[in-house]
Structure formats: structure tokens, C-alpha cells
Simulated assay, not measured.
Amino acid sequence: MSSTGDSATAADLAEEFRQLYGTDPEGVWAAPGRVNLIGEHTDYNDGFALPLALPHRALAAVGRRTDGVVRVHSADIPQGVFRLDVADLVPRSENPGADNGGWAAYPVGVVWALRAAGHPVTGADIHLSSTVPTGAGLSSSAALEVVTALALDDLYELGLSATELAVVAQRAENDFAGVPCGVMDQTASACCTEGHALLLDARDMGQRQVPFDLASHGLRLLVVDTRVKHELGDGAYAERRSGCEAAAAALGVPALRDIAHEELPAALERLAAAGGGETIRRYTRHVVTEDHRVEQVIALLDADDVRAVGPLLNEGHASLRDDFEVSCPELDLAVTAANDAGALGARMTGGGFGGSAVVLVEEADADAVTKSVTEAFAAAGYTAPRVFEAIASRGAHRVA
């Protein structure tokens, strides 16, 4: 999204804020969704990931309140204004049955997380709009969290860094909304820079901006939104996280990140000898090999050998499909149809169980690959996918 587009949308959002709340917002902020090039289900294993921010983003018009009330409204969801007292906010980590407002739990959870960390947030009026597709594995929830965190940080002069805002946003999703995600999504939304992918070390939050200019190489990265909605709070994500933690405990390491790639065969034998079932051995194999794939992709990008990344995307998809079992027929078809049409490589991206795939293509082949995927979906009787180009974009920032 261009800065001109941001400004126009910001003006519209500010006018809607005035109509909703009867006063002007104190500003408008933006935070993007993301795609993850490689490094899936590694962040909560203290591992590595390589996401990039999308042009698609959430916008928030926000004003402070001093009466302990938070009001939240979305231009995209016709459910009216949610009104909650900040003193009454209860995270699902303390009360699993808490009704935290459905989608509103993401921005409201940020208010709770900031207050729980001791920051003097006394309330807010928030009006949101987003172009990040929901349920598509593109971090629509993280964009809502990060844009809210950035706005409140600015308005209340909290002085938090982008990385600290990402951690606050993750806590909101983990504890308040009840989704046990890692920190990669929020960090990408908060910290990515235009024209770069972000190498994230989830253990110490170390970051490196990696140049990612595919156009200069005659390449494109396509996103195929299968339109199969995923829901990560349904237990399947939590089961995989707990399985990884059980494997690390059985191996006597803090996290699966601590198993080097060359140590994997011996680690799998140790798990089997300790009574570790096939499932946690498969989870272990995925995480260890996926961390290694991130390292391989970084080496290729540093060597300016971008085309060689393609086969590693295919390997990553096979691992997510077979070892981690988070793919679905639509994602598998998108990957197969793209590769059959000449893609350099493809894989599912995001938490899985639906959502999107990324496809690395020669610029000249982009239309043919898109056509192949679309026709394959039609032949299978699936809903037509949405295909668009991923362009490495700017992280969260103030727009008005």
C-alpha cells in the first residue's frame, strides 16, 4: 500500500471515528500482515523464521480515554461497538470461558497486556479497518494487535521498542485471546522494513533485515489464499506445541532448536528409546529440519542465488504436510498445481489447517502459474483461490 493510499484511508477512518465516537481521533496507525518465506512452527521452539510484511494492513484510528473504558469498533465487521471496562478484563489464561468479544479480543487484549505489564493505559476509543485477509494464515490478528499496541504506545508515551510491542502483542494473543502462538507474526508486523525479509531468532529476539528484492532478479513471490478458513484456537495448534515441548523435555534440552541438524538421527533414536511416540518424533524431525532450511535459505540469499530457494520451499511443504500434519487438500493442490506449471518452489505458509501458500516463480511464468492453480481448484470443485503478489513492505508506523 502506498503512502498516498494510507493517507486517503486514514482520512476515511478518521471521519468514521468522528461519526462513531463524536470526537476526533488523536491519530491513525498502520500495521501489516505477513507471509513467512520459510521457518514454520519454529518460533515457539526458540528457532528461526524468515517472514516479510505484506502491503495488506490494519489501520487504527485511536483516541485516549481517562475513565477506564475501552471501546472498539471494526469497519469490516457489522457487530457494533464493543465496550468494556479495563478493570474487568480477564485473560483466558485465568478464565478459559471468558467472553472477550470474539475478534475484539485481539485489540482489547493489548490494552490488558499493557496494563498487566504496569503501563498506565486508562482506556481508549479504537476504530479499525483491515485489508489483511482473515483466516488466511497471513497474520490478520497480529496486525490488529500490533497496530493497537503502537497507537497506545504513542498516545501514552510508553517508550516501547518495536520488539517490545511485538512481545506485548504476543502476550495479548496467548493469554487474553487464548491462542498459543509464537512471536514471529507480531514481530514481522512490528519490525519488518520495506524491501527486506526479517530473519528472526525467537530465542533472544535477535533480528536481521535481509534484502529481498525479487523484481531485480526477474522473480515474483505469489500468495495463494485457498479461502479455507483456519482457526488456531481449536486445540490442534496447542497440541503440536505441547508435543514439541514434550519432545524437548525427553531429550533434555530447553527447546527443539537446541538439536543440531546433524544430531537429528541420534535424537530420534533417543526419543524412541525413551518411549516417545511416532507423533512427537515426526514433530521433532519437522522443527529441526525446518530450522536448517531457514539457515540454508539465508545462505542462498546472501550468495544472491535466489532461484535455488525454490526446492527448499518444496521440502518445507512436504515436512509440514507429512511430519507436522498441518496442511490440507487445498494447500497441497495449490503447491502441486503451481509446481506443475513451472514454479521454482511452493509451500504452505502460516499455522496451517487452511490458509495460504507461497509460490516462487519467474516473472514470465506468474500468469501461467496463477492460471494452473485456479483451474486445478475449479476442477476439484474448490472455491476459487485468491492469488496476489507478496511485496516486502514496511512494518507498523503512524500514518496520520
Rank of each mutant, 00 (worst) to 15 (best):
T9D: 14
T9L: 14
A11E: 14
A14P: 01
E16W: 14
G22L: 09
G22F: 10
W29F: 14
A30D: 00
V35K: 12
E40C: 10
D43C: 06
N45G: 03
A49I: 03
A53P: 09
R57L: 04
L59P: 01
A60I: 00
G63H: 14
G68T: 03
V72R: 01
V72K: 03
G80I: 03
G80A: 06
R83D: 05
L84N: 06
P91V: 00
S93D: 02
W103L: 02
V110N: 02
W112K: 06
R115D: 04
R115K: 11
A117D: 15
G118M: 11
G118W: 12
G123R: 12
G123M: 07
I126K: 08
I126E: 03
S129L: 02
L138S: 05
L138P: 12
S139C: 10
S139D: 00
A142G: 12
A142E: 01
A142D: 01
E145C: 13
T148M: 06
L155M: 07
Y156G: 05
G159M: 13
V167E: 15
A172S: 14
A172L: 07
E173N: 06
P180Q: 05
G182Q: 04
M184Q: 05
D185K: 11
T187F: 09
C192Y: 01
G195L: 01
G195E: 00
L200V: 04
Q207C: 08
R208N: 02
Q209T: 01
F212M: 02
S216W: 05
H217W: 09
L219Q: 04
R220A: 10
V224W: 07
T226Y: 03
G233D: 02
A238G: 12
R241T: 09
A247N: 11
I259A: 01
I259T: 04
A260V: 03
H261D: 12
E262Y: 12
E263R: 15
A267D: 01
E269I: 03
R270S: 13
L271G: 04
L271M: 06
G275A: 10
G275S: 13
G275W: 13
T279K: 13
R281A: 13
R282T: 03
V287R: 06
E290C: 11
L301C: 14
A308E: 12
A308R: 15
S319Q: 06
S319P: 02
D322V: 12
F324R: 11
V326A: 13
C328I: 05
V335K: 13
V335Q: 10
A337F: 11
A337I: 02
A338E: 01
A341R: 13
T349Q: 10
G352K: 08
G355Q: 01
S356W: 04
V359M: 08
V359L: 04
E363H: 15
A364V: 15
A380M: 10
T383S: 13
R386M: 05
F388A: 06
E389V: 15
A390T: 08
A390Q: 07
I391F: 12
